[in-house]
Amino acid sequence: MSELSVSHLLGIKDLTPKDISFIFDTADHFKEVINRPIKKVPSLRDITIANLFFENSTRTRLSFELAQKRLSADVVNFSAASSSVKKGETLVDTVNNILAMKVDMVVMRHPLAGAGVYLSKKVDSVIINAGDGAHEHPTQALLDSYSIRQELGEVAGKKVVIVGDILHSRVALSNIYALQKMGAEVKVCGPKTLIPKYIESLGVSVELNLEKALKWCDVANMLRVQNERMDISYFPSTREYVDQYQLNAGVLQKIDKEILIMHPGPINRGVEITSEIADSSNAIILDQVENGVAVRMAVMYLLASKIK
């Protein structure tokens, strides 16, 4: 494979399995680079990237910024809180103003689903979606599948359960697409109110009982309950959620098998997962963070090759 089939990374849905494998193979090399004494390559030295975060983010923004700096790109950061967006400027105007300063690539997080797709049609720049509302978070899904491949050898044939707030999660949707494209079987598990109504149409099965779901799976990806996106109460109390869906030593003892535990962060310790399990040897949460930089370097390197 000589290049990606897409010119933007708006969602996993647009990628082919070959694209994903190409990103993973390239990420392998970048992972070696970021473990060198000097962790930098000059590939993107003539590329300028704008990170536009219209919604809060810590690890994704840091991970992107670090990946850009490791690739020697010039980086400008923008957060909505301190911008003219507050003064009523439209998204396209904001971005076109930034592009007028000769920016080649835009990494954008936005609270509205489809913001990346919209922008890619309106402006002349490579767009990378760093999360758009409850739609997609493609680089998170890539790094999750990449971490599974690293730990278990391959993604194909593996059984992965995504547990928690599926309804509000862009991570869940992108993960479902990525895992299925790489040949994994996917199940979602959580309170019925947090499982979207027609999720089966994506080819995933639903399990309401955490213990049964864990007995079935090789990998459990625990999602955070996104209180900030909940306008109504989706379950009676946090205590009840903990009782039914928390990953803890008790439930892991019952399933009597070793499973890989993942979490996209930030963790609500004591809610979806206990500290004891989050810090255990089966949890690869910090490996996911390390892999995130390598995967994002691969994505930006491969997309930058298309900038003429």
């Binding site: 494979m1 000589s2 390239t26 090399h29 680079v33 590939s43 090759s305």
Partner: peptide
């Protein structure tokens, strides 16, 4: 040692993107 990421012809026609193991 792989030199793909240090190549001076990145984004120029015909330069390979695929790296090899260092």
């Amino acid at each position: 040692l792989d030199t793909t990421f240090f190549s001076d012809d990145f984004r120029r026609k015909g330069s390979p993107l695929q790296a090899n193991k260092t």
